[in-house]
């Protein structure tokens, strides 16, 4: 039963959601009511959202469990794990407290502490992390981007054209050709490749979906 019930639930859910795709919606003017499968589909979607929300809590619990274990072990990352836990529960506490009116750190007319932390810490930190990419890409461009084969040469040339075509100076030094080459690469080469990949991947998803709905694919049960 531990195997059969999950498979039965999966098959039923899959069939109902698929059925809802092909059934009628409400049309008041024509006097048509919503098909029952659409109502079931809506309910299942609500359940899925609840699962996602619960997954957040499970994720936090797991993060705390693993971090506490590492802090107790006194490893190299213990300090960073401690900072992470303080940040996690500190921000959670500030947010919950301000939401429920338990406490407020902001004066009259000032933005809530939750938003202050977001503006003054979270935004600069994330922006800094992302900005570091420019330095790493520059270093990688010098050390790793080598024309070792025909494929890597094509990749390098395409990359250089895309970088030139994306910025105004590219057109200035190539007399307007950089953006035209970029458009050709994006629309014809990239567009055709993307479509082929998407069609292939979608067929794969369809096949896997069918296998799950029909109960053939059971890897999600750790089988």
């Amino acid at each position: 039963m531990k195997r059969e019930i999950p498979i039965l639930l999966t098959v039923l859910s899959g069939l109902l959601v698929t059925l809802a795709f092909f059934t009628r919606g409400e049309n008041v003017a024509a006097g048509i009511e919503t098909h029952w499968s659409k109502a079931v589909n809506a309910e299942l979607l609500q359940w899925a959202l609840i699962f996602f929300s619960v997954a957040f809590i499970l994720g936090i619990a797991n993060l705390v469990r693993i971090s506490l274990k590492q802090i107790q072990g006194g490893g190299a990352d213990a300090f960073y794990k401690t900072v992470m836990l303080i940040a996690l529960f500190g921000y959670l506490g500030v947010g919950l407290g301000e939401y429920h009116g338990w406490w407020s750190f902001a004066g009259e007319g000032e933005q809530p502490m939750k938003l202050w932390i977001y503006d003054k810490l979270f935004i600069p930190l994330q922006a800094t992390m992302f900005s570091l990419l420019a330095f790493y890409i520059a270093s990688a461009a010098f050390r790793a981007f080598r024309a070792r084969s025909l494929e890597s040469t094509l990749l390098l040339v395409a990359g250089a054209i895309v970088m030139l075509g994306q910025v105004p100076v590219g057109d200035q030094i190539t007399d307007g050709y950089a953006s035209r080459w970029l458009a050709f690469l994006m629309v014809y080469v990239n567009g055709a490749g993307q479509k082929a990949i998407i069609i292939g991947a979608t067929l794969g998803v369809l096949a896997t979906g069918l296998r799950i709905v029909l109960g053939i694919e059971r890897s999600y049960l750790s089988e």
Partner: peptide, 23 residues
């Protein structure tokens, strides 16, 4: 920002060229 991006992109392209020449 586009002027800044222009400079950064040109520098990266220059690094690719110099890196490959050395290689």
């Amino acid at each position: 920002r586009m002027a800044v991006q222009s400079g950064a992109h040109l520098f990266i392209i220059l690094l690719i060229i110099v890196g490959n020449l050395i290689y």
